[in-house]
Design a protein around this nucleic acid. Sequence first.
DNA 1: TGGGACCATATGGGCGTCAATGGGATTGGC
DNA 2: GCCAATCCCATTGACGCCCATATGGTCCCA
Lengths: 146, 146
Amino acid sequence: MNRFLSNATNRIDAKGRVSVPSAFRSVLSDGGVRELYCFQDFVFPAISVGGPELLDRFERQMAVEDPFSPAANEMSLLVHGGGVFVKLDPEGRLMVTDFIRDFTGISTDVMFVGRGDYFQLWEPQAFQKAQAAAREGRKSRGLRPE
Amino acid sequence: MNRFLSNATNRIDAKGRVSVPSAFRSVLSDGGVRELYCFQDFVFPAISVGGPELLDRFERQMAVEDPFSPAANEMSLLVHGGGVFVKLDPEGRLMVTDFIRDFTGISTDVMFVGRGDYFQLWEPQAFQKAQAAAREGRKSRGLRPE
DNA sequence: TGGGACCATATGGGCGTCAATGGGATTGGC
DNA sequence: GCCAATCCCATTGACGCCCATATGGTCCCA
């Protein structure tokens, strides 16, 4: 498994650190990633996290759009200007900064949510809500695995 | 028999494990599957379980859309983030996590229900009710055999 | 046809390993 | 020289792996 899948919730300790789930760490080390790039999601109250190649991915997307469109402009602002780098400590933990807390509402627990090429940090309750809303929308459109 | 058919109910033990029915296990081992992908059903209070190819099926659906569209984003949230991987122990048991319990209402017994390509985990009573309701709905629509 | 041996599945629990967490020590920047 | 980030080590608690037992059904043979 070389992608970020599934989810897990971990507790923030007294120093403001939280363990990245083991499954996600092995995806990172398989890719030789030591430093992570984080920025705010465009629609959800979540922080997206990935290796430096995540930056490339969004830049490609911006390139296909009109560079002066509001969407591309906004994307650049968030991705280029709003991103931060974080490092993992030897045990695989990261610091939960105010940048993360303020945007997500995270206080005591962090939910790690796999998104395939990258993963996200969520406040657990907020994720439940967003997921329930997404499921409702999907149900009404009738999409099923079959 | 290479598909998941019929149903069976097994008890959860003190450690929160439950045996996957033998018939389902042999379908899995025929396919060389050791790790299972689970997600919440979109309609019923049941967890759907299958091999990784179940995930592939979702991803193919996502691939036809613009990967940056809201619909694809929403679906990734459900499929990548909402799904969970579980492993079977050497005896063919799986852990009944809170993820499963909360969504299905399962507490002491698990009903395994074959659905062809995949199978589902139900709280036994809930399944009886849903099945009865399905019969009623079908009857009121004139008893068409599909 | 009935009883008993046999087999497969389901279930119960001990134990080791590893991930998650907590806290003390050290470094480095302001 | 102080505060905060980083590193290092200890603890614990969950999970995976192993073996033992129970249970129910089937087959064989008397």
